[in-house]
Design a binder for these strands. Sequence first.
DNA 1: ATTGCATATCGAGATTTCTAAATATATAAT
DNA 2: ATTATATATTTAGAAATCTCGATATGCAAT
Lengths: 99, 99
Amino acid sequence: MVNNMELIRVYKALSNPTRVQILQWLKEPSKYFPEVYPDGVCVSDIQKKVQLSQSTVSQYLSTLQDVGLIESTRKGQWTYYKRNEVQIKEIKRCIMDHI
Amino acid sequence: MVNNMELIRVYKALSNPTRVQILQWLKEPSKYFPEVYPDGVCVSDIQKKVQLSQSTVSQYLSTLQDVGLIESTRKGQWTYYKRNEVQIKEIKRCIMDHI
DNA sequence: ATTGCATATCGAGATTTCTAAATATATAAT
DNA sequence: ATTATATATTTAGAAATCTCGATATGCAAT
């Protein structure tokens, strides 16, 4: 269950076009990124596409992760991100009741 | 059809707890407001409940209306607001595909 | 015409978000 | 040990949002 305040934070996370864009690219990662690993896509590949600084992209990914929309796996020096579809489904369900 | 940028504006509108609260109260106006008119609830009744200034509430309602979540009807010196359920349904549908 | 009431708009200070550069951390390769 | 690479964190200025008081607008009643 995603409560009221958590949903507000989800809306905040989604109220930035770049963050939403990333979330959408991650729906079909192989379509949008040069390499897709078992745990998702690495930060630098995402950064190349969004054309914002490395630190900004890293923070955006943290923001999306903080609200549960994506999840990360660290492997060596890389961090791979992918959508957390289970949580996204739950968030969607809650938004339906919320609005 | 609600496009990408319009949805971003919807998320922005929803990323404020008070605005979401108002939207939720308007689901069952007679439960939360002293008087409900055919076209909805007047600004001053909403203002009394949220305990923010009149100008803030007026702007919040404009914000919600701008993105289509509520609609207004002016009758004399009053403006009544109610949910735009048709548009909300459409927005929900688009959010489902969007996220 | 004037007064009073409901709402909208304007202007501004406080707070938050955006974004980058610089720095830190962690790992890999030499 | 040193160097290089990937990512995270810190710091800070610019831009946007929040919120209010003041003012404007529009309508109703006198």
